[in-house]
Write a protein that binds this DNA or RNA. Structure first.
Lengths: 171, 171
DNA sequence: CTAAAATGGTTTCAGATGTAACTTTTCACC
DNA sequence: GGTGAAAAGTTACATCTGAAACCATTTTAG
């Protein structure tokens, strides 16, 4: 597994210089870097399902979770995709209108929806998933096995930490 | 975006199991994890400047870059903040209206704007920056020095790679 | 049993955002 | 110099999004 040649500033030889203490250097600011990275990657993947199937990001996320866990309710989909219930409601409506998702309601509790991909939805799912995974793979093959594990740990640690921040820092 | 719900797997004790090959497990999918992490962190920081100063994210980014590099043009601000020029134009308008940014135009080229924080803008900047940095620090202090360097390298590598993806994968 | 609270989901309305068209100014070239 | 192409910004329009209000159903409490 060969590493690509280092580029403009990807060589860890010179550690990113911390600018004058107390200054905010956007290029070195973790939240900003994460945002740029995330948007760049999501954009690349979105090209796959937006161009070919006219799916929005929330729609694709709903399909992704239903493909793997059929029968969830809208609230469960919202929880699993980290989207709010309004976004899920709208995504589901459009998916039903497009014939990609089927909905029925639970007998025991007629408020609770039961969502599944339709055959057509399943077909889309099975076409998009390999491309999404291929794209992820082509990103990650830049990393060694050890880096991959570091990445995994780092993301978990940071997310864990970030969740505490946003709930505990309220004045 | 909405705050993601609490999660179940955050202990890095067991390495993330790769699910059945070819299946898309959202929780293990890098683009999704990055998106959730980025939104969670950005949301936490946004609380600082949105609640107190009514700044939107694009507005804050413009201020952040002007605080550090006064005198940039709108196009340069757009490039440095990774936002498109319409977003910058609108952010600058609102910032000018709010008295936080001053604009003049270059003598040599009267299309080119020259943007700076006003005194009021500078005051906001100097109040928000330490809080943003503190938040970043409290995130990063979960990491060892070596992890910090790994993170730095990983982000650079991935971004580099992601940029190629989105430009080279067009059919 | 029934009134109030809670839950699942949808709708509404106002503000945000992206794409494309447009204006103004400068530059390239003949 | 004059004309067309390019660059910097702004505006228009259509869509998207988020917060809050809303409806229907179920649960809880008295």
């Amino acid at each position: 597994m060969s590493r690509p040649p280092p580029h403009s500033r990807a060589t860890p030889s010179a550690p990113r210089p911390t600018p004058a203490a107390g200054a905010l250097e956007l290029d070195a600011f973790l939240p900003y870097r994460l945002s740029v990275l995330s948007n760049t990657i999501s954009g690349a993947i979105a090209e796959v399902y937006q161009q070919r199937f006219g799916l929005s990001i929330p729609e694709w996320r709903v399909m992704a979770i239903l493909g793997r866990y059929p029968g969830l309710s809208a609230a469960e989909v919202a929880a699993r995709t980290a989207q709010d219930k309004v976004a899920v409601s709208r995504a589901v409506s459009r998916l039903i209108a497009a014939g990609r998702v089927q909905r029925r309601f639970a007998d025991a509790d007629r408020r609770r929806s039961i969502l599944e991909l339709s055959a057509a939805g399943q077909a889309v799912y099975e076409e998009v998933v390999p491309q999404a995974l291929a794209l992820e793979r082509s990103l990650l093959e830049a990393l060694t096995a050890s880096e991959l594990e570091q990445l995994d740990t780092l993301l978990d640690t940071l997310l864990e930490r970030a969740r505490h921040l946003s709930t505990s820092e309220l004045p």
